Deep mutational scan, measured.
Amino acid sequence: LQLFIKTLTGKTSTVEMEPSDTIENLKAKIQDKEGIPPDQQRLIFAGKQLEDGRTLSDYNIQKESTLHLVL
Rank of each mutant, 00 (worst) to 15 (best):
L26D: 00
L56R: 00
H68Q: 11
L3T: 02
K48P: 01
D32S: 12
I61R: 01
K48R: 12
P19V: 08
Q40E: 10
L26F: 03
L69M: 07
L50Q: 00
L26N: 00
T55K: 12
D39W: 14
Q49W: 14
L26H: 00
G10L: 03
I5S: 00
Q41H: 03
E24D: 09
E18A: 12
E18C: 10
P37V: 05
D58C: 03
I61K: 02
G53T: 09
N60E: 07
I36V: 09
D39K: 11
F4E: 04
D58T: 05
T66C: 05
Q2F: 12
T9E: 12
K63V: 07
T14N: 06
G47I: 02
E24H: 11
E24G: 13
T12D: 04
L8S: 14
K6Y: 08
T12L: 13
E16L: 13
T9S: 14
L67N: 01
P38M: 15
I44K: 05
K29A: 10
I61E: 02
Q40Y: 10
G47K: 04
Q49H: 11
D39R: 12
P37I: 04
Q2H: 12
H68C: 11
D39P: 08
R54Q: 08
Q40K: 12
F4I: 11
T12G: 06
L1H: 04
D52R: 04
S20P: 03
I44H: 09
L8G: 10
D52G: 06
P38G: 08
Q49G: 05
I61F: 06
D58R: 02
L3F: 09
T9P: 05
S13Q: 11
Q49I: 15
K11S: 09
E18G: 08
I36W: 14
N25H: 13
D32Y: 10
T7G: 10
K63L: 06
P38L: 13
I23D: 01
L3S: 01
I61Y: 02
L1R: 03
H68Y: 15
S65D: 14
T9F: 13
V15C: 03
E16H: 13
L26K: 00
T22G: 03
S13Y: 15
P38F: 13
Q31P: 01
E18D: 12
K27Q: 02
T55H: 06
L50P: 00
K29D: 01
A28L: 14
E16V: 13
V15R: 00
E18Q: 13
K11G: 10
N25D: 13
Q62L: 11
S57G: 09
L1G: 04
Q62I: 12
E64T: 08
T7F: 15
I23T: 03
D52Y: 05
L43F: 07
N60K: 09
D32A: 14
Q62T: 14
K6S: 07
Q40M: 12
N25V: 12
H68P: 01
V70S: 09
S20M: 10
Q2N: 11
D32P: 02
D52F: 04
H68S: 08
D58S: 14
